[in-house]
């Protein structure tokens, strides 16, 4: 499967995703510059982490206007797979591909550490190889990961099974103390209704080699590779 990794001014996790796909998983991968409208025939798009445009306005608020995002929107509407990680998730929220918004972390500080997340939906193209309720150890690294959404929309997310990952204790229990940023309902990652666009704050690409301490994130990329993208 051919992957495309978007590059915005200020992206800084694009090399990490590129390395993982190309060097660890041995699949074709290309960088796609933010001013390009050509997705180069990629079958899955990764919107990487970082500080697009320095996060100087709202996170992701400027990147959403990039020409490449128009193409990504079209691609998604045709069932193409789009994975937004960290700043990439924030960009997908601003673009409107996913619902909700981010506040500054509850403790108002950047936080980088390993957290546990539970998989609450295994019927997506990103998680179908995992078991329901699996707990992954993956790192987070962000200042704005405190997810919010109006309560009626939250209800809808839940009803439609769009909450894919929740912060949890190592035993899988959803607790207040395992929530690193104050996100509503411990939400760490959500997908769209169709299940082909996923946004998550944790970094699975940082947890995909045993040398780096965890391979728990691999299941997400393997799921993508073995998925049959929804046909438009």
């Amino acid at each position: 499967m051919k992957f495309g990794v978007l590059v915005f001014p200020g992206s800084n996790c694009e090399h990490d995703a590129y390395h993982l796909i190309g060097k660890v998983l041995h699949h074709p991968v290309e960088f796609i510059w933010h001013q390009s409208r050509d997705l180069k025939g990629c079958e899955a798009i990764i919107v990487p982490g970082g500080f697009s445009y320095g996060d100087y306005l709202r996170t992701g608020a400027i990147a959403r206007f990039s020409p490449v995002m128009e193409s990504v929107k079209n691609f998604a509407s045709q069932g193409g797979l789009v994975l937004g990680i960290c700043n990439g998730f924030q960009i997908l929220l601003e673009t409107g591909l996913l619902k909700g918004a981010m506040l500054r972390n509850r403790r108002l500080k950047y936080v980088c550490r390993h957290v546990s997340i539970r998989i609450d939906n295994v019927k997506t193209s990103f998680t179908h190889l995992a078991q329901f309720g699996d707990v992954l150890s993956v790192p987070i690294g962000h200042m704005e990961g405190n997810y919010i959404i109006p309560s009626d929309e939250l209800e809808e997310l839940e009803k439609r099974n769009q909450i894919v990952f929740r912060y949890c204790a190592t035993n899988g229990k959803i607790t207040e103390s395992s929530n690193p940023n104050g996100a509503l309902s411990n939400i760490a990652g959500i997908c769209n209704f169709q299940g082909n666009v996923l946004g998550m704050m944790p970094h699975p690409e940082r947890a995909s080699e045993s040398l780096l301490g965890s391979r728990d994130g691999l299941v997400i990329f393997q799921s993508i590779i073995e998925s049959r993208p929804l046909k438009p």
């Binding site: 090399h15 982490g49 950047y110 980088c112 790192p139 690294g141 940082r206 040398l211």
Partner: peptide, 17 residues
């Protein structure tokens, strides 16, 4: 020194062992 280094991204570039 967790209080300090949790504020630093110490994993970007996926090399940190």
């Amino acid at each position: 020194k967790e209080w300090i280094y949790y504020q630093y991204d110490h994993m970007v570039r996926t090399n940190t062992i």
